[in-house]
Simulated assay, not measured.
Amino acid sequence: MRTTRVLSRAGLLAGAALLALCGTAGTAAADSGDDESTEPTEAGTSFRTATAIQPDQEATAEASTGDYLYWSFPADVGQRPTVHATVKLPEGTARHGGSTWQVDVYDGLRRHQACRFGAQTRAAAQDAATVELSCTLRTVRGWAEPWANDPLPGTYYARLTVTGLKADDLGLPMRAATKVTSSDAGGAMAVDGSLAKPLVPGIGTKMEAASSEPDDGWSSGLWSSRWLWTAAGGVLGALAGIGGYCLTRGSGRPARVPAGI
């Protein structure tokens, strides 16, 4: 009887421990699920309130037609960022005509940056459901002259707005989605020199300030694959010089005269 009571108590303790573990696992799974759904769901309405996003992170926002929507993202030396924007337009029956949409990109000094590729401005018919925009910047440089408008490492701003619209359509609900992708240009676009600090304005919320830096930190701008190509070129040049010297020295020896002549 005593043995049975001990076993029953042990079983209850084991069951309680198992339930505690299951509850902890469930909480951890819920927390993990919450972490995965941290993509921004709003946009700022000015440079100061721009919503910070990281490359390859999609952000969405519910807004009214006519609003200016701002997002900020980091871009480092050697990168070629592309801003993608998709606008889900209001119902065609609620609109009174077509519309024209535009995405603009500014650097940390709020200088407008030209788009090298992409459809920066697009017109949408009255019955169109969506409109897609894109803007590919020039390669971010590590250094530039003060008078130049070259893209430099730091914070960049993407602004989405409608530029052509009938007055009756202002204020209609719309949905916007934006995403920034980046490609590495490599050492072919590298330049000598680097900035002392990236162009990151000290403004905005704490979240924005913390997100203005890439996940892996800023690069120094001094090292690139250009150094490897330069070193390889030097080695090949030295070998070519040695080979040429050996060939020239061998061809300059006097010809041997056969004996008896």
Rank of each mutant, 00 (worst) to 15 (best):
8 S>F: 11
8 S>G: 09
9 R>H: 08
9 R>T: 12
12 L>K: 14
13 L>P: 01
17 A>P: 10
22 C>G: 02
23 G>C: 10
24 T>N: 05
27 T>L: 14
29 A>V: 10
31 D>K: 02
34 D>E: 13
39 E>G: 11
39 E>T: 11
39 E>R: 10
44 G>Q: 12
46 S>R: 14
48 R>L: 04
49 T>D: 12
53 I>A: 08
54 Q>N: 03
54 Q>M: 13
56 D>T: 08
56 D>N: 11
57 Q>V: 12
59 A>Q: 14
60 T>A: 11
63 A>F: 03
63 A>D: 02
65 T>L: 15
72 S>Y: 04
74 P>V: 08
77 V>R: 02
77 V>W: 04
78 G>Y: 08
78 G>D: 10
79 Q>N: 00
79 Q>I: 05
83 V>A: 12
83 V>I: 12
84 H>G: 06
84 H>F: 15
85 A>S: 06
85 A>N: 02
88 K>S: 13
88 K>G: 12
91 E>H: 06
93 T>M: 02
93 T>R: 05
96 H>V: 01
97 G>E: 01
97 G>M: 00
99 S>D: 11
102 Q>S: 07
102 Q>K: 13
106 Y>L: 03
107 D>Q: 07
108 G>T: 09
111 R>L: 05
112 H>Q: 10
117 F>H: 15
119 A>Q: 06
120 Q>I: 00
120 Q>N: 09
121 T>F: 02
122 R>F: 12
127 D>T: 13
129 A>T: 09
131 V>D: 09
132 E>D: 10
137 L>V: 02
138 R>L: 00
139 T>G: 14
141 R>E: 01
141 R>M: 13
144 A>K: 08
146 P>R: 14
148 A>L: 00
148 A>K: 06
149 N>A: 15
150 D>S: 15
153 P>K: 03
154 G>M: 06
160 L>M: 05
163 T>Q: 11
164 G>A: 06
164 G>F: 05
165 L>V: 00
169 D>T: 04
173 P>G: 03
173 P>Q: 09
173 P>H: 05
174 M>P: 01
176 A>T: 10
179 K>G: 08
180 V>Q: 07
181 T>C: 03
184 D>C: 01
186 G>P: 05
187 G>I: 09
191 V>I: 10
191 V>D: 03
192 D>V: 04
193 G>V: 10
199 L>T: 11
200 V>S: 02
201 P>E: 09
203 I>C: 00
207 M>S: 14
208 E>M: 15
210 A>K: 10
211 S>W: 07
211 S>P: 07
212 S>H: 06
214 P>E: 06
215 D>E: 15
218 W>S: 00
218 W>L: 01
222 L>Q: 13
222 L>A: 14
223 W>Y: 07
227 W>Q: 15
227 W>M: 08
228 L>W: 07
231 A>K: 11
231 A>W: 04
235 V>T: 09
235 V>R: 05
241 G>K: 00
241 G>H: 05
242 I>Q: 01
244 G>E: 06
248 T>P: 06
250 G>D: 13
253 R>T: 13
253 R>K: 13
255 A>P: 01
255 A>S: 14
256 R>W: 11
257 V>A: 11
